[in-house]
Design a protein around this nucleic acid. Structure first.
Lengths: 207, 207, 207, 207
DNA sequence: CATGAATGAGCCTTCATTCAT
DNA sequence: TATGAATGAAGGCTCATTCAT
């Protein structure tokens, strides 16, 4: 009985915390990180400023929470996706499918504003940028194993180390994503990305 | 006589404005745009705060001036550089030389901090970002004409429009530069850029 | 049955109130009155903030309770101590023994931090300082009767009223205690006090 | 001409700073150090809060300035006063005159509220308490040399080191002053001090 | 043109207290 | 009784901008 009461209140509290988070996030996306004050957030939430500090130790704590969220959103498990392909599928095709899927994830799951913020933060380095770059290591590994597969099947050139090629691919991904951020909405991320990787693929193929 | 005095004053004024600009720019590079106050700037200049507003309408006006400068710095006339190559030079070689030159210009003339700021500003869009993207059109044209040349000499594939290829190349440049910004100093821009373009080149070449 | 429960609850409540008091007191001694918040206290107690206000009407109410406690601690019954001396003991000796005992009580029973707080509060007069000065009247009486005894036995001068001399002695006590507070720990209260009273004693003795 | 203008403005600025100081000081005396906010001060001054920070780096900076002032006020040069006495004057008389003069200085020049604050600060030790105790060293020396004189003229007992006696005297001064602070206005500092020193003097005299 | 004192809106944070559960 | 989420009034401090000199 006591426990239930506790749960009800905690539920409400969580609701509040979530609302703060959501309002903040929306404002961040609209106006950028540094241009949103605690006042702005709590005005939007419709509660008192003091309440903010009940749920977040500081403005920075909320920022950190946001960034963590962004990273998590981008952290789709691509590895498992790879296993869905029939064994005889050409590595190039897997690679292209992969790139398409990543693009979809970025566009739909992460979203333009969030990505933009993530890219800004990396340039500002106010926060531990390691998080974001670490995350990429997963992508590095994914690409790396993919390139290796292509080398073993004799599809890809072998004069450049697989790892190095993977680096180039990730860099290209990031480059296209950055381009999307600054050209939005006049830039179709998926299309450009696919075409770009087609060119890169030609450059990687054994001839 | 009155005129002379005016001239003297104007000269002094220009001197002052320039000094403000230089001090501000250095501070911006050191601490980032948002973290430098008018006080900081004028402390460094060694003049009073009021003087700042004599020469710049607002803090933002100075920022805008800075960005314009950054763009101009990057605006080396690469076209003329192209003409220095003997007529029979392979387009691939010219392209690679070109990329190397651009890298040198970015690294030495523009500099890491300035580039980083420019890239940040594009993401923040507090200012007219058009400037920066316009500037690139020059590079687009340069790459475009280069790709065209390669197509005419039969070196490059012709199934993709030259302009489109140029777009991919510029995007790759920007991607590598962004990577430099976030990985600095553990990332050799010129090396990576050249290797990356070698791969791209393979993807563009006729086979 | 209901009654028993009530008693149980009351006991628990008292327990809680006491715990709050003890934790608060320790924090006050460590960090000073103004630097301890209700949060700090209840954190140490390990209960919720709301509970504090169940037991104390306000933060100030707790402070008042503390001060009362301090006073009570200092309120050792010195009178009864006096009676332990053989009748023929010289008054000077009793006086000195008395002073030594008071010093011991201050040092060991009351303690440095508590005394310091008490002395500060008297200067701040945020609370009813009367309490503290009233308490002293007991000491006045003790000293007074002692001085009277000395006069009757012909040990002490009689040109100054006994009460007035007692006032001087208490003031000297307080002065030395204040000195202890501000020179702690480089000041041995008991030693200094005894030496000081030796001088005073010389000034009081009949010659 | 330019200089004069400068002077006029600086004069006004100094005026403002002084006004802030005076208003602050008055509020401090009325309500105690911690209970006065920058808002309070500037409300009284009748200028904007920002102006406060033009003249004082922080609230604490103002507090420090106040305390320094208090100390300076108490720092009357008693040494020179000593020299005004005819050579054959009895040391006891000089000592008593000295004490009277110190009392006058405390009462009239320093003032009740300021002394109270100084004594509180010593107990709080928020600030460098050294300042206040250092100042006393002057008094120590003054008393010390006076006691020495008394010993040399054979007026004072010599079984206690002059320095030690001086310590007792200063402590007594401080004790009486503290008493004044907490008993104000029902305590005549000068009278009590003189009577107290008369007793002490008896204790110090050779017999 | 240069100065720098004055401004005031704004910012993040703290904390005693209330109250529904 | 106990809880802890919510409150809101302060508090100290920053900073771009204005303006009289």
């Amino acid at each position: 009985m006591k426990k239930e009461k506790m749960t009800v209140r905690k539920l409400q509290a969580n609701e509040t915390k979530k609302k703060i988070y959501q309002c903040a996030e929306e404002l961040f996306r609209q106006h950028g990180f540094e241009n949103v004050t605690v006042d702005d957030i709590m005005n939007k939430v419709g509660m008192s400023k003091g309440t903010f500090f009940v749920h977040y130790a500081s403005r920075d704590a909320l920022l950190a929470a946001c960034i963590t969220e962004f990273v998590n959103r981008a952290d789709t498990d691509y590895e498992s996706y790879l296993e869905t392909f029939p064994e005889q599928t050409a590595t190039s095709d897997i690679l292209m499918a992969m790139v398409g899927r990543i693009a979809d994830n970025i566009i739909e799951n992460v979203g333009y504003e969030r990505i933009k913020i993530a890219y800004r933060i990396q340039l500002e380095k106010t926060f531990d940028t390691g998080m974001l770059l670490n995350h990429d290591r997963k992508i590095y590994k994914t690409f790396s194993s993919l390139v290796n597969r292509g080398m073993q099947t004799g599809e890809f050139r072998t004069d450049i180390p697989a790892e190095s090629i993977a680096n180039h691919l990730v860099m290209a991904m990031r480059g296209a994503t950055y381009e999307w951020c600054i050209r939005y909405p006049d830039f179709n991320l998926k299309n450009h990305l696919l075409r770009h990787f087609q060119i890169l693929l030609c450059g990687i193929r054994k001839r």
